[in-house]
Design a binder for these strands. Structure first.
Length: 223
DNA sequence: GGCCAGGTCAAAG
DNA sequence: CTTTGACATGGC
């Protein structure tokens, strides 16, 4: 896996175009962790309603959320969609962390990066993106987050073709200095670009701020 | 009304 | 190994 210097250029251009994104929108590591599960394939606005419900109920902390009945948890997070599924997934994750670390679940972030990652992935319903989001945005660890927008943006410019999640993650991490602030901002910027200019199934916008990045307009295939 | 959203897992083919 | 289906609410 050879480094791809154009990735850092992409970051710089996105930052110049959009400015800092101030991610993750969550006040505590625990809130970030919950949000990471709730936002799976779901609009962030819906996640905010669900988190507001948990806050209003006073259960947005590790012990309280773990103590809720599953059905009750599901009802509270209903606005986030897939609420039965996500209630179980949250419960799985909290139980797994409690099993290893007791109430001091944030100890998971003190493990070597890939060990911590494997531990999070061991929870049913925590896949690579959720695990990396938790590591980066809740734990402050340099684990690059790949998502559907990242795939789409890179593929439209002919980069990372044929790479899966793990391959793209390694490409980013081999091409960038391992700085948490850089990983944080870059992923947020890619999401911003995707939302505004890189819609599914549509040609690239003429006004896309990185339209000519990597040497020319986007490729013909619009994933 | 249809499509999409900061995925993941299990079951088919 | 690749593709498909299930899971669900709310905005545009």
């Amino acid at each position: 896996m050879s480094p791809e210097p154009r990735l850092l250029q992409l970051h710089d251009r996105l930052l110049a175009a959009f400015g800092p994104q101030h991610w993750w929108p969550g006040e505590t590591p625990f809130e970030v962790l919950v949000g990471a599960v709730l936002t799976q394939n779901t609009n962030w606005g819906n996640v905010e309603r669900a988190i507001a419900n948990l806050k209003a109920r006073g259960v947005l902390d590790f012990a309280a959320l773990r103590g809720l009945e599953l059905a009750e948890l599901a009802e509270l997070i209903r606005p986030a969609g897939y609420y039965n599924l996500k209630a179980t997934r949250l419960r799985n994750l909290l139980d797994l962390l409690h099993h290893h670390h007791g109430e001091t679940w944030e100890e998971v972030f003190r493990l070597p990066l890939e060990t911590a990652r494997e531990r999070l992935l061991a929870a049913r319903g925590v896949g690579p993106e959720t695990a990396d989001s938790i590591l980066l945005y809740a734990g402050g660890r340099p684990s690059f987050v790949i998502d559907a927008y990242t795939f789409r943006v890179l593929h439209r410019h002919g980069l990372g073709l044929g790479l899966d999640y793990h391959g793209l993650r390694r490409l980013f991490m081999a091409s960038l200095p391992p700085k948490v602030s850089l990983y944080n901002e870059f992923h947020a910027l890619l999401v911003r670009l995707g939302k505004d200019y890189c819609k599914k199934g549509r040609p690239a916008c003429v006004s896309c701020p990185v339209r000519d990045w990597a040497g020319g307009p986007a490729v013909a295939e619009f994933v």
